[in-house]
């Protein structure tokens, strides 16, 4: 789904170079996810998925090179 968002706007060569799972406790340390969010997720997501629900990613993509006369 994430890759699709990039392809949809025209990017090519989309590559997730680094992908690390976050446990909910670690997730709470980041600006976007306050304790209220973590509590919310903990309540609505089964416990066996708590360690793999969220990932940090480092991603690269390219704007394609358009060759003159190419399609």
């Amino acid at each position: 789904m994430l890759r699709k968002k990039f392809f949809n706007v025209g990017f090519v060569g989309v590559d997730v170079a680094d992908r690390a799972p976050f446990g909910l406790t670690a997730l709470a340390r980041y600006p976007l996810f306050p304790p209220e969010f973590v509590d919310f997720v903990r309540a609505v997501v089964p416990a066996d998925r708590h360690d793999t629900l969220v990932y940090s990613v480092v991603l690269t993509a390219r704007n394609p090179i358009v060759r003159e006369g190419g399609s």
């Binding site: 994430l2 990039f6 990017f11 976050f22 976007l32 940090s56 990613v57 480092v58 690269t60 993509a61």
Partner: peptide
């Protein structure tokens, strides 16, 4: 090139 770090 685009290079981003984020949480998904």
């Amino acid at each position: 090139r685009l290079q981003i770090a984020d949480i998904v």
